[in-house]
Simulated assay, not measured.
Amino acid sequence: MMKNRVFAAMLAASAAIVATVPASAQVAGIATVNQMEVITRSKAFTTAETQLDTTYKPVRDQIQARQAKFQSDARPLLATVDTNKDGQVSEAEEQAAAARKDPNYTQLMTLQNQANEEIQKLQMPSILAELFAFEKILQLYDAAQIGVVNARKINVILQPEAIVYAPDAVDISDALVAELDKTPTVAITPPANWQPQQRTLQFQQQVNELKRRAYQMAAMRAQQQQQQGAAAAPGAAAPAARPAAGAKPAKPEPR
């Protein structure tokens, strides 16, 4: 899938490309590794992501449908709050509608709150499933790291950014991926009343940020390709003007 290829490309760009070297080439007991890059390269991670996409696709379709319904229901109400009819609801217009207790604005807020609550309920099982898989993968990573540390007699592991210069031998990413791949799958169904560790929540946030950046990059590339195609077409119209700086959508979609 395109999003996975872009995601993988961004991860590759965030870490140095290294050659596989024998354990005897380890430099003075010092090693470097990018934990995020290693985990997201592992079979357990990529398989879990595929399983989650497949298992929860119907729920994600429901969420998209609910978001679309909110947008449809909100459109006529937003038009009444947009008093200067410029197609945007400014902060001042929103505050004015709230201050005068505009019934349309009140109804809009009610619709948004209802949509948010429903979407959060729909999202929760898939969020917990992802967290459960991530926690299992992090546990595998811990065990893999201990195995590589003992095998290579490593005393110190540093983030790659902390090193000004080092030979390729200090990077143990490939060794850790190989160790992780000995367990190619993890469960994605948490037991009842299971709660994730704080470390797992932080890891999920990091993954989501990488995905967000990957989606932005993919969107920018698609837009550039469209613009290049339009410019190459004979008689193509001039590209549309960009929205004014600071312009904001009429109302954010519920998440």
Score class of each variant (00 low, 15 high):
residue 5 R to W: 10
residue 215 Y to S: 10
residue 251 K to T: 04
residue 207 V to T: 09
residue 247 A to V: 09
residue 110 T to S: 08
residue 237 A to L: 15
residue 231 A to H: 13
residue 28 A to S: 12
residue 101 K to N: 02
residue 102 D to V: 01
residue 34 N to K: 14
residue 189 T to S: 04
residue 116 N to Y: 04
residue 220 M to G: 13
residue 130 E to L: 03
residue 246 G to A: 13
residue 13 A to D: 14
residue 169 A to V: 08
residue 92 A to T: 14
residue 19 A to V: 03
residue 142 D to S: 05
residue 72 S to W: 00
residue 234 P to L: 08
residue 108 L to R: 07
residue 144 A to K: 07
residue 251 K to Y: 12
residue 165 Y to T: 08
residue 32 T to N: 05
residue 101 K to S: 03
residue 16 A to C: 01
residue 45 F to T: 12
residue 240 A to I: 05
residue 240 A to S: 03
residue 225 Q to A: 15
residue 241 A to D: 03
residue 213 R to G: 04
residue 14 S to D: 15
residue 96 A to I: 02
residue 223 Q to T: 12
residue 107 Q to F: 01
residue 9 A to N: 02
residue 166 A to T: 09
residue 60 R to W: 11
residue 216 Q to D: 13
residue 136 K to A: 14
residue 231 A to Y: 14
residue 157 I to M: 13
residue 59 V to T: 15
residue 231 A to D: 13
residue 15 A to C: 13
residue 77 L to W: 03
residue 195 Q to T: 00
residue 82 D to E: 03
residue 80 T to W: 06
residue 81 V to M: 03
residue 160 P to G: 11
residue 162 A to L: 11
residue 86 D to T: 00
residue 56 Y to H: 10
residue 85 K to G: 00
residue 13 A to V: 10
residue 224 Q to E: 15
residue 183 T to S: 12
residue 67 Q to N: 12
residue 166 A to P: 04
residue 61 D to W: 05
residue 135 E to D: 09
